[in-house]
């Protein structure tokens, strides 16, 4: 079965999720035919560059950022992402960080929610009502805001400081989580992302324990997800991986999500941020 699955794309696509455990054990070196498929897919990804629909989200996010909103009629211009109220340029490259006003380490998305609740007067439920949007009738302000904010760090080197003990703690927890096996399949993040050359169907799984892979992965999220026609954020990425890991739903902006983000973001330090990306 594995042989057949690996031979042609059509058959590979037929692979059900249930067979995932089987495919994961496939690590042999790619055959020649497969390498040409890989090259063709690389070509596809290149042909897609040069017009990222995430720009549409960025524009909408900028609008939202500048518009007074919520019961208190306050815009994000008073929201401090760590570099001062309203400062967006370069802010994403230094997140997550410890925010004394919140008494917590926050990533971009949880900080946006914090500002909506504490400055604009929304309830937490209102602020997080639509975290992952779907189509024209269910759009997520958070996805648009995230697209706008991260784009202002394009080209800025990732620089998540571990000087603050709160951040160091989060990093340590995130690292522990990354290697923690559990669930019906006894999977950890590291099961899928801990060695080279693993793949599910045609998706290469990045080896996030390697610096280069970790940098490339983190600096290209959030991303326009071609298969969904939506911009997805890093919170979504983690949420979806934990689903694949057969873990309970990751709560948006939870400490668990921020710990994982802190670990992965800090491991990307030194690489230039290059998002929003564009992904399958």
């Amino acid at each position: 079965m594995p042989r057949k699955l690996r031979s042609i794309p059509g058959a590979a696509a037929a692979l059900a999720l249930g067979a995932l455990a089987v495919t994961l054990s496939l690590i042999p070196a790619p055959a020649a035919a497969e390498q040409s498929v890989e090259k063709a897919i690389e070509q596809y990804r290149q042909d897609l560059q040069g017009g990222n629909p995430a720009e549409l989200w960025e524009a909408r996010g900028e609008d939202i950022w500048n518009t007074p909103r919520g019961p208190k009629h306050v815009s994000f211009k008073s929201c401090d992402l760590g570099l001062g109220p309203g400062v967006v340029k370069g802010a994403y490259a230094e997140l997550p960080r410890y925010f004394p006003d919140a008494g917590r380490v926050l990533d971009l998305e949880s900080r946006l929610v914090w500002c909506m609740v504490n400055q604009q007067g929304f309830t937490h439920a209102e602020a997080t009502k639509i975290t992952f949007g779907k189509g024209a009738h269910k759009r997520s302000d958070l996805e648009a805001l995230a697209a706008y904010v991260v784009a202002q760090s394009d080209g800025v080197k990732m620089n998540v400081s571990l000087a603050d003990p709160h951040v160091r703690d989060m990093y340590a927890v995130g690292e522990k989580m990354f290697f923690y096996r559990a669930g019906t399949h006894d999977f950890a993040c590291a099961t899928c992302h801990g060695s080279d050359g693993k793949r599910i169907r045609l998706q290469d799984l990045p080896n996030l324990t390697k610096k280069a892979d970790a940098q490339k992965a983190y600096t290209t999220w959030p991303a326009y997800r071609v298969s969904q026609g939506e911009v997805r954020t890093f919170q979504w990425r983690l949420h979806d991986c934990l689903r694949q890991q057969r873990f309970p739903d990751l709560i948006y902006g939870s400490d668990a999500s921020i710990a994982l983000t802190t670990y992965l973001a800090a491991r990307a330090n030194g690489a230039a941020y290059a998002g929003p990306g564009m992904k399958r």
Binding site: L17, L20, A40, I41, Q203, Q228
Partner: peptide, 10 residues
Amino acid sequence: IKVTLGGCGG
């Protein structure tokens, strides 16, 4: 043009 449906992960 060959079309592969691509993986899980939605």
